[in-house]
Design a protein around this nucleic acid. Structure first.
Length: 468
RNA sequence: UCCGGCGUAGCUCAGUGGUAGAGCGAUCGGCUGUUAACCGAUUGGUCGUAAGUUCGAAUCUUACCGCCGGAGCCA
């Protein structure tokens, strides 16, 4: 008698008639006065639970089985048999049902077998993985993460564990969380009265990273093809369905590459991970397609079949200016300003009706490290826009010329010394290189149709919320 | 951070100045090779917190706390 995951039983990987053991939690119990009960048992390995037939000849039928409620932990031994009724091909005819853990006070167990609001489930973050929807999200998140690593590994990329703590106080992208061991109630001061960070743990100010990009560039210029995939922290006071204070980001970086190669990589990468998801999680995707977002499977299938449209920013502005004559935009369109989400949605949903890569933006609205184009007014930046969500990837070719990089740093009012090692990369064997950033949670939102980013990460951290 | 909305039973909500309600859940019973079953009964509340107006406040006022949506920032 061997242990099996319910997934393997339902997939037909175990012969009918086999003696088996399963370990899991009760989802539902239905009793028949004919002298038996049906117990749905779930172990997280698949969307569907397996049905256990428990007859009143079992010694603990009256004393325990008839008292099982949702979430009781059980070990079931029995025979895998064909089911005589509709609804499932196989079931387990139990020879023993051992109750490992009971549910105290079933009337107040927070996860009733009914539909709960997503807001309520967030308040029960420790119990919500037991629900159909969060269980499905969990498997999808895992499958996408595995697909990310497999894609890069098979193409010779190295996964670089860039630091979580950074002593660089000049990463640029938004507010940062401070990392310190100083006693907040008794801060050391310098003679001028400022906080004396030389006495802090790192001997200087330190923060949680907002991006692994600058660090990963160093490894790119040695290992050729690299990526980061890890947590990222932003201390912005953002209260939206698309922002987290702690989220996971994927940032590939490739050497001897220009913006076009970067866009090629983004397109191939996204199609790969979404194809893997459709292939490997059909049951979970069917659930999302039925109960969460009726178009999500078709949207993904269409996404992986499309060839991405590529358009210059300048050209995109012309398209939008022409469209503005017949289409009302809340915000005006003009060369030199960033595209609003309504503009991005128009391009990808109405005009091209497919994923779009917008390339070469005005330098004033983009970061200092993006490569200055020959026209002197644009940089080699790109955004990948997808129907139904808008921006899903932001990337660029990096400025590899030291003199141009220095000028851009100074233009931005930044200090050269703060970027000394980043600048070194341009002094010693510099090459054209490029990369992009993909928000992992936003990718899951897009794939599943779940609207709120707090529902696709196990324990969300947002302003005023770090419970659990 | 700004704008808007919402806090009533375990959950989802109704109740807009006069005895606190429904559905679901849970519990008990009935029925059924059942499928988030079905039928009946039972259970269930400091109406977010504090102060105020009033003969009387879930309901009106003020403050605070929390949550949701949109905007900005971005991934």
């Amino acid at each position: 008698m061997s242990d099996f995951m319910i997934r393997d039983l339902l997939a037909g990987k175990v012969a009918e008639g086999s003696q088996i053991t399963i370990k899991g939690w009760v989802r539902t119990r239905r009793d028949s006065k004919a002298g038996f009960s049906f117990v749905g048992v779930h172990d997280g390995s698949s969307f569907d639970p397996i049905q256990v037939l428990a007859e009143n000849t079992l010694p603990n039928y009256e004393s325990e089985i008839l008292k099982l409620t949702t979430a009781c932990a059980v070990i079931v031994k029995g025979e895998l048999v064909p089911s005589p009724a509709q609804g499932q091909a196989l079931e387990i005819k139990a020879t023993s049902v051992e109750v490992v853990g009971w549910v105290e006070e079933p009337d107040t167990y927070p996860m009733a077998p009914k539909r709960h609001s997503m807001e309520y489930l967030r308040e029960q973050a420790h119990l919500r993985p037991r629900t159909n929807i969060i269980g499905a999200v969990t498997r999808v998140r895992h499958t996408l993460a595995q697909a990310v690593h497999r894609y890069f590994d098979q193409r010779g990329f190295f996964w670089i564990h860039t630091p979580i703590i950074t002593a660089s106080d000049a990463e640029g992208a938004g507010a940062m969380f401070r990392v310190s061991t100083l006693d907040l109630a008794n801060l050391p001061r310098t003679q001028s009265g400022a906080v004396d960070f030389s006495q802090d743990f790192f001997g200087r100010e330190a923060h949680l990273t907002v991006s692994g990009q600058l660090n990963v560039e160093a490894y790119c210029l040695a290992m050729s093809k690299v990526y980061t995939f890890g947590p990222t922290f932003r201390a912005e006071n953002s209260n939206t369905s698309r922002h987290l204070a702690e989220f996971w980001m994927i940032e590939p970086e490739i050497a001897f590459a220009d913006l076009s190669a970067d866009a090629d990589l983004a397109e191939d990468f996204l199609k790969y991970i979404f194809t893997a998801l459709l292939d490997e999680r059909p049951d979970d995707m069917a659930f999302f397609n039925k109960f969460v977002d009726k178009g999500c499977i078709e949207r993904l299938e269409s996404f992986v079949k499309s060839s991405f449209e590529r358009v210059e920013y300048t050209e995109a502005v012309k398209i939008l200016e022409a469209a503005a004559k017949t289409q009302k935009f809340e915000f005006p369109v003009a060369w030199g300003t960033d595209l609003q989400s309504e503009h991005e949605r128009y391009l990808t949903e109405k005009h091209f009706k497919k994923p779009v890569v917008v390339m070469n933006y005005p330098k004033e609205i983009k970061a200092f490290y993006m490569r200055l184009n020959d026209d002197g007014r644009t940089v080699a930046a790109m955004d990948v826009l997808a129907p139904g969500i808008g921006e899903i990837i932001g990337g660029s070719q990096r400025e590899e010329r030291l003199d141009v990089l220095d000028a851009r740093i100074l233009e931005g009012g930044l200090e050269l010394e703060d970027y000394w090692w980043y600048r070194d990369l341009r002094r010693f064997g510099t090459v054209p290189h490029a990369g992009f950033g993909l928000g992992f949670e936003r990718t899951i939102n897009y794939a599943t149709g779940i609207e709120n980013i707090r529902d696709v990460i196990p324990f969300p951290r947002t302003p005023r919320n770090a419970d659990f």
